[in-house]
Every structure is written in structure tokens, then in C-alpha cells.
Amino acid sequence: MAEPLPVTEFIKALKNEGVEVVEYKTTWRTHNRGKRGDGWGPVQGVMLHHTVTRGETPEEVKRSVQLCWDGYDNLPGPLCHGVIAPDGKVYLVGYGRANHAGLGDDDVLRAVINETKIPADNEANTDGNARYYGFECINLGDGKDTWPPEQIDAMVRVSAAILRAHGWNKNGEGFISVIAHEEWQPGKVDPRGPGYPGHNAVRALVAERLKHPASWTPGAPTAPSTYTVKAGDTLGEIAERFHTTVAKLAALNKTLIKDPDDIQPGWKIKLK
């Protein structure tokens, strides 16, 4: 839990993390929804979305960014703080309260604050616009529009930048300070689509990045090679988190795992 970063520190954190930042308009730093509802802050994490728009051409990217700036008649902009384009550029469109998260589940918020496992979202009783940094990723979200590696890398970098600046991620591999809109508000499905590795895999990539300096460039986003089992973990949950299967994990760790239903806290298991 923390007050939002001063805008200059926000930009510095993104750039230090290797994010290609585009300040969309000169007034973006004061483009926000003001003191509506609970205002903005204290903040607890980062929320990732998709725009439900195209981004195959520069003109389509521009229209998507402008939409996030303007919003809609019944939902004024900004609709996020940054728009992540397919090529990995991040367009900054607002700072302060933004209409991106809406009402969500207070149990999810408590889990984010405590950095524990995210429960299923089944309520909409808490103002997420006041609690999260929001990034919209340009993608149709129709299950067909592909997520390029550059876009996934930018999602990981912006998330890591904010967590690093706030000193979040106390639990190492177990952090959950980055969530998808789907995990916050019932009925939402974003982000999703081919090339998107899954919410748990994105969190794993952010956790891996935070083990290195902000200047670290892995060449391409990759999942960690090992995972340390924590109390309450099951092999099925670990397999889902890292986008693999129980059978593959059992085969990789056959000298350690004799029974897939019996894993112990403290074990360091191979993921690949």
C-alpha cells in the first residue's frame, strides 16, 4: 500500500526498466478524473487490460491510443495510464485517477495487498480505479488477434518498473501485485488471445525480472527455470502458473517427485 509515485518518478522508473515511452500529448500528466469517488491512492498494484481494438497499422495504433485518451460518452477518459502497442511502445495518456478498473472484489484487493494467492472474483464492491495503475494493451481480445513478444515484454517491463519503484514483491516468486482485469471484475475476460502466456506466466516473468537490475535485457521474455515450492502449493497449480503440465514437471523432477500429490515446501523444482 502506497501513495502513487510522483509523475517524474513514474516516468524515470519506466525508462530505467528499458520501456520505450511515448508522451502522447503534453498535457497527459494532468489528464485524469480528478477527485471522483475515492480519488487515486493509496495504490496497491498494476492492472493489465486489452483495448478490444486493432493495432496492425500506425493509424490503428493512433486510433487506439486516442480512444484511451478520450474514452466514451458514458465512460470519459483517460481509460488507463499507459497504452502498450504491439511493437512494445508505451503511450502515456494520463496520470491520476483513470477509468480502467471499475468495481471489483475486495477479497482480491486484500490478496494483492498481502501478496497471497488470488481468490476467484465474485463481487463488485470496491473501487479499483482508486487502487491500481492501469495499462491497456492494444489487442482485439477476440481469441484470434496475436500478442507479439515485444508487447508481452513491454507488459512485463512496465509492471516490474512500478513494483520495483514501490518496493513491492516481498514474496519473490509468490508475488501477485500484478493482476489482469479478468481477475478483478466479474464478467471481464481481458487480457487473452494467442501469444498471451497467461496471467500467472506474466507474473512469473515479472518476478524473474525483479531478480535482476532494471537495466537487464534477457533478449526475449522467458519463464524462470526453477521454482521453490511454498506451503499450500500443489503440482497442478504450479503447472498452471508456469504454463506446463503435471506430467512434464514430474518427468523433469523424477528424482525428487515420487508422488505428484506429495510435494514439500522448500523443494526447488525444475520448470524446464
Results as ranks from 00 to 15, higher is better:
residue 158 V to E: 01
residue 94 G to I: 06
residue 119 P to L: 13
residue 116 T to S: 10
residue 97 R to V: 08
residue 121 D to F: 00
residue 93 V to C: 04
residue 92 L to M: 13
residue 99 N to Y: 06
residue 147 W to S: 06
residue 130 A to C: 15
residue 109 L to M: 09
residue 102 G to F: 09
residue 102 G to V: 14
residue 135 F to H: 12
residue 144 K to M: 14
residue 145 D to Q: 10
residue 156 V to Y: 02
residue 117 K to A: 14
residue 149 P to L: 06
residue 126 T to V: 13
residue 146 T to Y: 13
residue 126 T to H: 05
residue 127 D to I: 12
residue 102 G to L: 12
residue 106 D to C: 09
residue 155 M to Q: 12
residue 120 A to P: 10
residue 139 N to M: 08
residue 119 P to Q: 00
residue 106 D to L: 07
residue 156 V to S: 00
residue 156 V to H: 02
residue 131 R to S: 01
residue 135 F to Q: 06
residue 142 D to A: 12
residue 103 L to Q: 15
residue 149 P to I: 10
residue 92 L to C: 01
residue 150 E to A: 15
residue 156 V to L: 08
residue 127 D to R: 00
residue 139 N to S: 15
residue 128 G to Q: 02
residue 110 R to Y: 11
residue 129 N to K: 09
residue 104 G to W: 00
residue 134 G to Q: 10
residue 125 N to A: 07
residue 117 K to I: 12
residue 93 V to A: 08
residue 112 V to H: 01
residue 92 L to W: 03
residue 150 E to I: 05
residue 126 T to S: 12
residue 142 D to F: 14
residue 156 V to M: 08
residue 116 T to A: 14
residue 118 I to K: 02
residue 115 E to H: 02
residue 153 D to K: 08
residue 102 G to H: 09
residue 146 T to E: 15
residue 127 D to Y: 02
residue 93 V to Q: 01
residue 131 R to W: 03
residue 152 I to N: 01
residue 141 G to W: 07
residue 143 G to V: 12
residue 119 P to Y: 04
residue 145 D to I: 08
residue 113 I to M: 10
